[in-house]
Amino acid sequence: MAERPTTSWRHGIAEEARELAAGTLDPDCACMAELFPEELLAATDTVLNTFEAELPGLGKARDEQVFAVVERVVLALNAVNEAHKGSAFETDEREELCAYIDESLTEHDIDVGALAARHGLGRYQLTNKWRKW
């Protein structure tokens, strides 16, 4: 199963905490906990829970149904980003979230490349119509 970005973000926070405790990381260089506060992680996980719940059976759905699921997850992530003053998801996080959406759809028998092509999009443009992060 595709790994949620929040999982890797939590691992980064834990690793940074271990390095701080061991004295191998300068406290001035620590930023993970500030970048990914628990409130942001929890809100993002709530959105991803909903997205994942919509995936089973989607492989046999019409394109419009698949796009509706993508639209809902992107709009919900937009709301999370807005709640964090538009700075919840920077470039790396955006790429991770988009890759997660793509991988999750693929795991549920959606040919993302073909879906995108049928609608005149590149494979990695699936979220662009709605994404503000």
Rank of each mutant, 00 (worst) to 15 (best):
Cys98Leu: 15
Tyr124Arg: 10
Glu90Ser: 11
Val70Phe: 01
Asn78Cys: 10
Val112Pro: 01
Thr127Met: 12
Ala79Asp: 10
Lys85Asp: 15
Ala68Met: 09
Phe89Ile: 01
Ile101Leu: 10
Arg94Lys: 15
Asp102Gly: 06
Asp102Tyr: 08
Leu115Ala: 03
Phe89Pro: 06
Asn81Phe: 04
Ala76Gly: 07
Arg72Pro: 01
Leu97Ala: 03
Val70His: 03
Cys98Phe: 11
Asn78Leu: 06
Glu107Asn: 13
Glu96Tyr: 13
Arg118Ala: 08
Leu97Asp: 02
Val80Gly: 03
Leu126Ala: 07
His84Met: 09
Lys85Val: 11
Glu96His: 13
Ala88His: 02
Ala88Asn: 02
Glu93Gly: 03
Cys98Tyr: 11
Ala79Glu: 14
Leu126Asn: 01
Arg123Phe: 09
Ala117Gly: 05
Ile110Trp: 06
Leu97Arg: 03
Asp102Pro: 00
Asn81Pro: 07
Phe67Ala: 07
Gly122Met: 13
Thr91Cys: 10
Glu71Ser: 11
Ile101Ser: 11
Leu115Gly: 05
Val70Pro: 03
Val112Asp: 06
Val73Ser: 04
Lys85His: 15
Val73Phe: 08
His119Trp: 08
Val66Asp: 07
Ala114Asn: 09
Asn81Gln: 12
Gln125Pro: 03
Ala99Thr: 10
Leu75Ile: 08
Leu115Met: 02
Thr127Ala: 15
Phe67His: 09
Leu121Arg: 08
Phe89Val: 05
